[in-house]
């Protein structure tokens, strides 16, 4: 499972404006709705439901919200860099500025897990995050995410 299989260039946002976790998730749901053709509300509720079970803020300013949607045809990823970090109830209590959203169809059992593990491994690499934070544009972010050496290492 490679990142480019999940993420398309129009799924990358370089400077998302959000003042809170909820707002960030709302913004991302809206974009995800456009890409996947699903209802924004359904996506947002799915993500909130997951956050209710426990935060997806995995530390070091990273969050990986995710969930399964019945009507989806494949796995969809979205990436956003926030203009200003927001409090995400992260496990290390650091505010979050890099968010990778992953939506999976109900049927994608093993693939869903693989994709999540893949994204999580990529964003655990501090050098990658450093570059993502310094990248100029959405295109640069997309290139880093899909082409970074770490994405081949696995």
């Amino acid at each position: 499972m490679e990142i480019f299989q999940l993420l398309s260039p129009d799924g990358v946002v370089a400077n998302l404006k959000a003042n809170s976790k909820k707002q960030a998730l709302q913004e991302l749901s809206a974009r995800a709705a456009r890409i996947t053709g699903q209802h924004e509300r359904v996506i947002f509720d799915t993500l909130l439901e997951r956050e209710r079970l426990g935060t997806t803020g995995v530390g070091n300013g990273i969050a990986i919200p995710h969930g399964r949607l019945p009507g989806l045809d494949k796995l969809y990823g979205l990436f956003a860099r926030l203009e200003r970090p927001v409090d995400f109830d992260s496990i290390d209590e650091m505010p979050v500025d890099l968010i990778f959203l992953l939506l999976a169809p109900e049927s994608a059992g093993a693939d869903h897990l693989k994709a999540l593990a893949r994204v999580s491994r990529l964003l655990r690499d501090k050098a990658v995050c450093e570059k993502l934070r310094g990248a100029e544009s959405a295109d640069a972010l997309y290139a880093l995410l899909t082409d970074s050496p770490a994405s081949h290492a696995a």
Partner: peptide, 9 residues
């Protein structure tokens, strides 16, 4: 924290 896996519930 990677000792505890990828995600938290």
């Amino acid at each position: 924290d990677e000792v505890f896996g990828e995600f938290v519930v």
